[in-house]
Design a binder for these strands. Sequence first.
DNA 1: TATGTTTGACAATGACGTATGTCAATATTC
DNA 2: GAATATTGACATACGTCATTGTCAAACATA
Lengths: 232, 232
Amino acid sequence: MTERTTRRKTSRFRGVAAEERQAQRRAMLIEAGADVFGEHGFHAATVREICKRAKLTERYFYESFANREALFAAVYEQLTQNLRDEMVAALLPAPRDVGAMARAGLTTLFASMRDDPRLMRILFVDVFTVSDEVDRLSRRTTGAFAQLLQTLVDSFYPADRRGGLDTNLIAHGLVGACMNLVMYWAYGGYKEPLESVVHNVAVLFEALGAYVGGAEAPAAPAGPGRRVTRRR
Amino acid sequence: MTERTTRRKTSRFRGVAAEERQAQRRAMLIEAGADVFGEHGFHAATVREICKRAKLTERYFYESFANREALFAAVYEQLTQNLRDEMVAALLPAPRDVGAMARAGLTTLFASMRDDPRLMRILFVDVFTVSDEVDRLSRRTTGAFAQLLQTLVDSFYPADRRGGLDTNLIAHGLVGACMNLVMYWAYGGYKEPLESVVHNVAVLFEALGAYVGGAEAPAAPAGPGRRVTRRR
DNA sequence: TATGTTTGACAATGACGTATGTCAATATTC
DNA sequence: GAATATTGACATACGTCATTGTCAAACATA
C-alpha cells in the first residue's frame, strides 16, 4: 500500500533540463570516443577510458549507448557527417569544371584529414573491423561518397562518351586512391605539401576525363577502340 | 648426483625428423591462421580456435609463435609473398607496354582476391589494426608494391615527361584504387565480371599515361635526363 | 528544513582469453 | 621389453574488461 511516493521530478539541474543534460553527456561521450578510438584504435579502447576522458561514469555510458560498438557507430556518423558537410561547402562555390571541383573537394578532404589525426584511423581503418553492422554502415557511407563522385563524373561526361567505362567502378577506385594516399601521407608525417598531394590526385581525375571524352580537357583522339597503341 | 641420464634423442618420429615435424606444425598453424583470421577477422580469432583448426594443441602454438600477433605477421608475409610471386609471374611474359602489363598484373591480382576470400580481410583490413609493428610491416609491403609500380611507370615515362607529377604519390593512389575496388567488388558478391573490373582499372593506368605523355610512345625527345625508354 | 533526485566514486559479478601446466597414451630407441 | 620422447586432451592460474550494483554526497523542490 505505498505506491504513493509523490514522485517529484527535478525539472532542471544546475540550470539545464534533464533532456538537455542527457544530450550533453551523449555529446561528451562521442567526443571522448573520437579521441580514444582515434588515438589507440577501437580494439584497444575500453569503456572505462572513454568515460574517464569524458569525465563521466560508466553508468552514463550505458544510458546513451548499448555498448562500445554503438558508440563507435555514433562517432563514425558524426565525423563523416562533418566531413561531408565541409566538402559540400567547398564544392558549391567552385567553378563547374572537373579540375577546379576536384581540387576544391580534395583540398578540403586532405586538409581535414591532416588537421584531425583521429579521422584516418576511425574512418579508414577501424571501421571495417568493429562488427558486421558497422562494416555495412561504412560501405553505405563510402558508397555514398562514391555515388556523389559518380554523379559528378556522369554529369561531365554523357553516357555516350565514356568509352565503355563503368563510372561506378571508377568512382570507387578514385575513392580508394584518396584513402590510401591519406594513409601514405599521414604515415610519412605529411611531408609532401598539401597542394602537391591534391594536385596529383586531381590529375588522376583530369586524366580520366581527358582520356575518355576530353570535354574541357586536353583533347584526345576519340577513335573507336583506339586505345594506347598496342605495340606490335 | 645423477645428471647422467643419457639424454637420448628421438631423431625421427613417424618417419620425419624433429626439425621437419616442427616446420610442418608451423605451416599448419599458418594455414589455420589464414583460415580463421580470414573468416572472422583477427580480433575475433582465438588461439584455441586456430589450434583446433590446425589440429594441434596450444602448446605447439607457442612453440612456433610468441602470440597471436606473431602468427598474424607470419600469415601476412606468407600471403603477400604468394601474391607477389603470382603477379611477377604474370608480368614477366607480358608485352612491354602499359596497357598489357597493367592488365596482366591486375588480372592476377583481382583473380587471386576473388578466388581466396581470406585475402581481402587479412591483407587490406585487419593488418592495420593488429599492432604498431604489424602496421609497419604492412606499410613496408604496400610500399613495396607501390615501388614496383612506380618503377614501371618511371620506365615508361621519363622524368621530363611527367608533367610535374610525383610518381610516388600516383603509385600509392593507384594501389589504393585497387584495394578499394577489391573490397567493393567482394562486398557486392563479385557481380561484375573480372574483365570489366580489370579493364576499368587498366584505363585508369592508361589514362594517366596518355595524359602525361601522350600514347605510350614516349619517343622522348630525349632530353638531358635520359631514361631507359623501355620500348623497342 | 525535509524529502526525493541527480550525480560521482567505486565495488561486485561474470565472461572470456592467454599462457602454462598436468597426465596418460603412444611411439621410438636401446 | 624398458626407458625416454613425443603427442593430445584437458585443466589451471591469471588478468582484463563489460556490465550492473551500492552508497553517500551534492542538489532541487516544497
